[in-house]
Design a binder for these strands. Structure first.
Length: 950
DNA sequence: TGGAACAGCTTC
DNA sequence: ATGGGGAAGCTGTTCCA
């Protein structure tokens, strides 16, 4: 944003030089401004702008007329160039350094339109009338155009249109004119009709407003394809007049680039992690203090972002000039931090820039400077460390809790320490901090609020705590947000506008609070009202509290899909994002959650906010990935599967959120997943009982990872080792080898190669990168629990790659599994019968993971379904058992897996079985509801198939 | 009873 | 146009083994 005229003087000359706008300016200035309004000539340079980056203006009053009265067209007026040079050389440039285009344009918009009017009046007096063809148009011109912006400006206003100098996000512009449009601009202009300049010139030629859709830019091309190397073939042009939404392949990139919250959040998390580690080191020095009274100080920068950003602008009088920090460009972006001068005007954090400027027109908007925040934060924490407190608890970049109990003096000694700290930090960072101190975290927090700005506030009179707390709004208590406040207000019969204070809660009993908010929150709230808080900030006592526990991505804007393919593609891209972040942060995760926002029934299809989510219900579902992983393919598949299990209608989808948790550190690719898992495997032996029963049979029967059978982690770990014959593997075509490796990786299956089928020597482990590592001999006991996949290429292919095995009985695998003493057929029987008999409803759930994993031929599934249908019609207490919802979920999940694997025929045959079963005389159909349910399920299968074929 | 799964709230 | 476009953590509730 601060690329001001000093850094790019040439562009202005070029822009000004090749235009004819001095014809307009010349006459305009000489007649209207130079003479009548000499203080208002700034608008000329408004026109010398391009994409908002190079505004040279903000001129002080200029008395000398700099253009003469000539009206010659197409010549470069040197005096104008001089003006630009002058401006760039003189004091007004300092204003530009603020990057303060927002304020500037806000003002200029009104003034300029006023002047446009004057110009039109003057012009039409002298010459012929121009037909007001653009009378209903508010037009903004973007980028380089031909004719250029100044000519277009003139054309537009002369023909009755309104010319916009600046396009606010919620601007009333009706049209955007551009010759070229970058992908980024496509997002920015998604609300507008983006049209080529020819629309203007042609309309003027024809003396009537032409159909803009014939000139739409988005139809034809993105433009600047050559410049943006990443905009390759992946980017196809958008459908005509279609705004960019989550269906666009580049949507996520745009979305995150434009999401201030996303920037802040990830940036904050990164810093936090870093400082927490430092803090951990510090706190190791601390001992446990058994002193009765703690001394806690809460220290925090005063409006951190605003203060730090202002440092780069030494000419700002930070104490008196209102400033705010916001992501530049849009009036609708949030004020993330503002100084106290701005707060006097009523500006507050979280407010939109537009609104803030309304309240305080002088408000200067500064850009973020993340690098500098980080630097200052480092200094801040460095100073805290140097001070050598009992422990440091980082709350965020600019905020920390510190324990100083060993001081044992809450009077002048503590005050001296605090003031010295504040002074040191001010000297080192140039920013002020405030400190609140008390004998617990809660009170220290509340003191801090009283200390701000640039002050200290102590409270150490336990006997007076009631007095201290009584007028404090409950909203100020940590962990109490607007929801809890609302409920309290409601309970106390207070109006929604009234502030609930702590003294209001004196009448509320502990029991009531617990009843309202649950045991933890209720008790906490009650204790807080008495000024009680036993939060311990000593990190070293509980380090696990500081380890990152999840990584998530939220997209709740721009989500509009029409068909399953779009949703699946999108989920695939989200999976990739998750993968990128796991990689960057050095984590693997084993639990995946998908949360969907579904348009609430009755809510408008299009909410007031463009492509916003509107009123939604949230639904979530999670799954175990089996073992820690960050494999994109697996994440993507699971997300798709979860989506289907949640079952939100595609057109009602408004938000998607993905969280991966149960994280495990894995810093580099070299530190292979398999190595890690091996360690884990060795370290944690399964419990005896988990080895028993049917699960053992399943385990012994073959290689599958039952992703969807919950709580079988140990079993999955057991299944992670399989033997593969190295020679056989090597003999496979390269392509197939890769495919197998990929698939094994996908399932996190560790592959053990056996040099010789007969002897268990020279065992090797296939590593992630394809290399082979020697491993020690496998213990005999575990050995016989493993399945040797020795055999031909075809079998490997079949067993590993999910292809159906038609002739299982004839394959070598049959003999190999003889280790269990059972034939495949017997094992199947046991599995099926045991599950069916012992947990009738859970059949599909238990076998779900096996569904497309080879060992069960499709006939089994058919039989299972028949059984299930029959079972649902059986009577229990004279009522049919019916279809259990969970079973249905599992069944649908299975169907979706089949569909994902393109096993269309199989789905059709299952649907057929439902139809046949229902019409069979075997069923004494005494429950019409049940029968209808089955028909619905039958219909649903068709729907799912249809959706997949779109 | 304890944990898994999901839902809700709060925070910077 | 008066808005809430992130991400993470903790707590609560329900269900099930």
């Amino acid at each position: 944003m601060n690329k001001n005229s000093n850094s790019q003087p040439k562009s202005y000359e070029q822009e000004i030089g090749d235009s004819t706008f001095e014809a307009f300016n010349g006459t305009f200035s000489s007649t209207q401004i130079s003479n009548d309004n000499p203080n208002e000539d700034a608008s000329f340079n408004d026109l010398a702008r391009n994409e908002g980056r190079d505004c040279v203006d903000i001129s002080p009053p200029r008395k000398t007329p700099f253009l003469n009265d000539t009206k010659s067209q197409g010549t470069l007026d040197t005096s104008l160039t001089e003006l630009v040079d002058q401006q760039t050389d003189h004091e007004e440039t300092k204003e530009l350094k603020f990057g303060d285009y927002e304020t500037y344009f806000y003002y200029k918009k009104l003034k300029q339109q006023e002047k446009d009017e004057q110009y039109v009046q003057w012009r039409t007096k002298k010459t012929n009338q121009f037909p007001p063809i653009f009378s209903n148009c508010v037009i903004y011109v973007n980028g380089r155009t031909d004719p250029d912006i100044t000519q277009l400006h003139r054309m537009i206003i002369l023909h009755g249109g309104v010319f916009l100098n600046y396009l606010g996000a919620k601007s009333n512009a009706t049209h955007v004119i551009a010759s070229n449009i970058t992908p980024r601009k496509i997002l920015e202009f998604r609300n507008f009709k983006v049209i080529k300049p020819e629309w203007i010139t042609d309309s003027i030629k024809e003396k009537k407003l032409l159909d803009w859709t014939k000139y739409t830019l988005l139809n034809s091309q993105y433009g600047q394809k050559g410049l943006e190397s990443h905009c390759d073939q992946k980017e196809k042009s958008l459908p005509p007049n279609r705004p960019i939404d989550a269906t666009h392949p580049e949507f996520l990139k745009f979305f995150f680039e434009n999401s201030r919250l996303h920037h802040l959040s990830t940036w904050k998390a990164d810093l936090r992690e870093k400082f927490q580690q430092e803090a951990l080191k510090v706190s190791k020095m601390s001992q446990t203090f058994t002193t009765q009274r703690k001394i806690i100080i809460h220290i925090d920068f005063d409006c951190f972002f605003a203060a730090v950003s202002a440092l780069s602008h030494p000419n700002i009088d930070f104490a008196n000039e209102p400033i705010a920090v916001s992501h530049g460009g849009k009036g609708s972006s949030d004020v993330s931090s503002c100084n106290y001068a701005a707060r006097k005007f009523g500006v507050s954090n979280g407010m939109w820039v537009n609104r803030a400027l309304e309240l305080c027109p002088e408000l200067k908007i500064l850009d973020y400077d993340f690098k500098l925040y980080e630097e200052k934060s480092k200094i801040f924490y460095g100073e805290l460390t140097r001070m050598g407190p009992d422990c440091i608890f980082p709350v965020s970049v600019d905020e920390a809790l510190i324990e100083l109990s060993s001081i044992d003096d809450e009077g002048s000694a503590l005050m001296n320490i605090c003031e010295k700290l504040r002074n040191n930090i001010y000297v080192l960072t140039g920013c002020t901090v405030s400190i609140g101190a008390s004998y617990n975290v809660l009170l220290a927090k509340l003191c801090l609020r009283k200390a701000k700005p640039n002050g200290v506030f102590f409270f150490f009179q336990p006997n007076d705590v009631g007095n201290f707390l009584k007028n404090i709004p409950v909203k100020q208590l940590p962990g109490i947000g607007h929801k809890i406040e609302d409920r309290l207000a409601n309970h106390l019969n207070k109006g929604s506008k009234e502030i609930v204070t702590i003294s209001d809660l004196n009448s509320v009993s502990r029991d009531t609070m617990v009843k309202f908010f649950g045991i933890k929150t209720g008790t906490k709230l009650f204790d807080y009202c008495q000024g009680l808080d036993d939060t311990d900030i000593d990190i070293s006592k509980n380090p696990s509290r500081f380890i990152r526990k999840s990584i998530s991505i939220d997209v709740n804007w721009g989500i509009r899909f029409e068909n399953q393919t779009q949703v699946d593609d999108f989920l695939g891209r989200v999976a990739d994002h998750i993968y990128q972040r796991l990689l960057r942060l050095g984590f693997l995760g084993s639990r995946l959650m998908l949360k969907l926002a579904r348009r609430t029934k009755g809510a408008p299809i299009d909410p007031p906010k463009y492509l916003g989510m509107g009123l939604c219900d949230f639904l979530s579902k999670s799954t175990n990935l089996g073992a820690p992983t960050r494999e994109v393919g697996l994440i993507a598949t699971e997300l798709k599967s979860l989506y289907r299990m949640i079952g939100v209608a595609i057109t009602d989808l408004r938000g998607v959120s993905v969280t991966i948790s149960e994280l495990q550190k894995c810093d580099s690719e070299a530190n292979s997943v398999m190595d890690q898992r091996q360690l884990q495997f060795e370290a944690k032996k399964p419990k005896e009982k988990e080895m028993q029963g049917i699960e053992q049979n399943l385990f012994e029967s073959g290689p599958f990872i039952p992703h969807h059978s919950p709580a079988k982690k140990t079993m999955q770990k057991l299944l992670q080792k399989h033997l593969v014959d190295l020679d056989t593997f090597k003999a496979l075509p390269n392509e197939l080898q890769q495919e197998i490796k990929f698939e094994l990786e996908r399932r996190n299956v560790e592959v053990l190669f056996e040099k010789s089928p007969r002897k268990n020597r020279n065992r090797n482990c296939l590593l992630r990168d394809g290399s082979v590592k020697k491993i020690s001999k496998v213990q005999p006991k575990t050995q016989n629990k493993r399945l040797d996949l020795i055999g031909d290429q075809k079998l490997l292919n079949k067993v590993i790659l999910n292809t159906p095995v038609e002739n299982l009985e004839n394959s070598p695998i049959h003999q190999k599994t003889g280790l269990t003493g059972l034939t495949i057929g017997e094992q199947k029987t046991i599995v099926l019968n045991s599950y069916w008999a012992s947990a009738k409803m859970k059949t599909f759930n238990k076998l779900y993971g096996l569904g497309i994993q080879t060992f069960y031929e499709f006939e089994d599934w058919k039989n299972l379904l028949r059984d299930w249908i029959r079972f649902s019609f059986e009577s229990e207490n004279e009522k049919p058992i019916g279809i259990h919802e969970n079973d249905l979920d599992v069944f649908y999940g299975f169907i979706h897996k089949l569909i994902l694997n393109e096993k269309i025929y199989e789905v059709l045959s299952l649907a057929d079985i439902i139809t046949c079963s229902l019409s069979s005389s075997e069923l004494t159909s005494n429950d019409i509801d049940n029968e209808n349910d089955w028909r619905k399920i039958r219909g649903e299968l068709s729907n799912m198939l249809k959706a997949s074929l779109v």
